[in-house]
């Protein structure tokens, strides 16, 4: 059975990756299993300079999911290159760095540095809802996405994936912005903007008031958007949003995703990613399919 895929020029042993911000830089999960099992590790959102993140409380549970407003706390790209990258390189898996910034200059400078590191690809985070001055502005229009992606494309020779926010009216427009600017792939979706109110205190639970919703609660929205994007662009799509098992992953692949990513699911079961790989294999076996590539986009619409 073949589970290998070529996603945007990244040759992955299977289509399963772990999503940015839910896996740190891999160290904690390496205590549970060999990261070489994964198709790729996508790092925590990393910026040019260290960021301290938002005030607590930063997370809260919601029906079948959670809200977060971490605010992209990270040690910065220099620290990553010196301390975390050498660790990740020990594993036989692909390394995709999730890159975020406040300005186009930030993104370009960051990607210039990333271009010289031993990583396999960059995922541009144009979509984090938790940083006011930043990504959202670029991520919500065709022009905005195209502008940042084009600027980064000029300095980045490695595969470039653009991660899209679902907080838009028509996600195919931003997807096309990425494609037209020369992106090699798209990942979708980032979190949906949400809010939870503590009715006793009459205050939002998150100090930031609003935050990004993730987990199984958002899966139907994500599947729909992945389907729409896959129909609208020629570059491959990485699907994510609420995946907690192989069946969920297969659903995204049928909708048109070539690869999948697991986010908040890592929090409830540290072994969710390897189990998802097995789950996909089970599905292929049950359906007598020899190559995982044969299920991509194979949904038959009513």
């Amino acid at each position: 059975m073949n589970t290998e895929i070529d996603f945007a020029g990244i040759k992955m042993k299977n289509p399963v990756t772990v999503a940015s911000g839910t896996f740190g830089y891999g160290r904690e999960f390496a205590e549970f299993y060999d990261l070489s099992k994964l198709g790729a590790v996508i790092t925590k959102g990393t910026s040019l300079k260290p960021r301290n993140g938002n005030r607590p409380s930063r997370v809260c549970e919601t029906p079948a999911g959670m809200l977060n407003s971490i605010g992209l706390q990270n040690p910065g790209v220099e620290y990553f290159a010196q301390n975390d990258l050498p660790f990740l390189r020990k594993f036989d898996t692909k390394i995709i760095v999730n890159a975020c910034g406040n300005t186009i200059e930030d993104y370009v400078e960051l990607c210039r540095i990333l271009n010289n590191l031993e990583i396999d690809a960059v995922e541009l985070n144009l979509s984090c809802p938790n940083v006011c001055a930043g990504c959202m502005a670029f991520g919500t229009t065709y022009e905005g996405v195209k502008e940042v992606t084009s600027a980064v494309r000029k300095v980045l020779d490695k595969p470039l994936i653009v991660k899209l926010t679902p907080n838009v009216t028509d996600i195919t427009l931003t997807a096309k912005g990425a494609e037209d600017a020369g992106a090699d792939g798209i990942s979708a979706i980032n979190t949906l903007l949400g809010m939870k109110i503590d009715i006793e205190k009459r205050k939002p639970v998150l100090a930031n008031n609003t935050g990004g919703l993730s987990g199984p609660a958002i899966k139907p929205v994500a599947v729909r958007m992945v389907y729409q994007i896959a129909k609208a662009v020629k570059i491959p799509v990485m699907g994510l949003g609420g995946i907690v098992n192989g069946d969920d992953a297969v659903e995204f692949m049928l909708a048109g995703a070539k690869a999948v990513s697991i986010g908040a699911g890592n929090f409830i079961d540290p072994y969710v990613a390897p189990k998802t790989i097995e789950g996909i294999e089970d599905y292929l076996e049950r359906h007598n399919i020899n190559d995982v590539n044969d299920i991509i986009g194979k949904v038959e619409m009513n």
């Binding site: 911000g21 839910t22 896996f23 740190g24 904690e28 999960f29 925590k44 993140g53 607590p56 409380s57 930063r58 997370v59 809260c60 959670m66 977060n68 971490i70 706390q73 639970v205 908040a264 890592n266 929090f267 540290p270």
Partner: peptide
């Protein structure tokens, strides 16, 4: 309040 409890989410 915790997301992961194992040090990855920074929640």
């Amino acid at each position: 309040r915790m997301g992961c409890g194992i040090g990855v989410c920074l929640g």
